[in-house]
Design a binder for these strands. Structure first.
Lengths: 141, 141
DNA sequence: TCCGTTGCAATAATATAAGTTACAACAATA
DNA sequence: TATTGTTGTAACTTATATTATTGCAACGGA
């Protein structure tokens, strides 16, 4: 059990845009070739990133560009743009209210799991696109 | 996208055992009634908890008991007993090696995401079954 | 031997994600 | 204006993972 492609794919997309937007027109077909994911998934993800204000996508002519500086885009921004779930774990919906454990299990776990999710968000916020770009240029040097 | 029932269900099971093991024989049928999950799932989960050394299950006669003190069972123990995945996110398997981003995306993300997962484990380790039992008795008082 | 239970396998049902196809709308341009 | 390449969606299919269900052998005590 783990999170899906989405966030990593979105990061990949944004890195490609950051690297190539000055040289070429970054289309969903181009991105599809680098990420190796279907163009429609790319467009859907791009749409979520656009809705989150992270990128601009040219309507007819095509091509995506970053809307913010890489240092101002965090993994938390990206995560929240593409993942809609509020909870880290799926809790069983109908525990038995006649059982003291069943009656309280949600209350016991919810707060604590939300706290953990909050820490995860804090961690994601520490990583910016610029961090990754710097690391990338080190590796390609 | 989120983690499945498993961990919360396992926690529910262990709490029920802790609460009722002195009074009654805690069978998978009984647990099924409180958690509201199919008995076979209960037995499977119980099997994982047994393999992890957290509970003892009586073979023919039936009934489960804690094998360790509630203060010595952490949510991390439970999580690891029932979730086998190593990675938090599913990375795209075949990015394009001809693209500098595609060639390095795994290296860029893997370490950072593992660190985040490590923090999550640290958080889970801070919560013991005893913590939850104390909270539970406050709520039922 | 009978009974309730566990352990396990096989299968079905369900949910979610990803892939695929099709097509309207858009903007540049020949 | 027609053409071209692209985006934005919707509908459908496929793949995968999780949970539910059924069936049955094995176990241990009454």
């Amino acid at each position: 059990m783990q999170f899906s492609f989405r966030m990593p794919v979105a990061v990949h997309i944004l890195l490609c845009i950051a690297c190539f937007q000055k040289e070429i027109k970054v289309t969903s077909t181009f991105l599809s070739g680098s990420v190796n994911v279907h163009p429609v998934i790319i467009r859907k993800t791009l749409g979520q990133l656009k809705a989150a204000g992270l990128v601009d996508v040219a309507a007819g002519v095509g091509g995506a560009k970053l809307k913010k500086a890489p240092a101002d885009i965090t993994l938390q921004d990206i995560f929240q743009a593409v993942e809609e779930e509020e909870d880290l774990f799926h809790l069983q919906e109908n525990p038995n209210p006649a059982c003291p454990v069943g009656r309280n299990i949600h209350a016991l776990l919810n707060g604590r799991l939300q706290t953990i999710r909050g820490h995860m968000m804090d961690d994601l916020r520490q990583i910016t696109l610029q961090t990754l770009l710097d690391d990338l240029s080190k590796r390609t040097a």
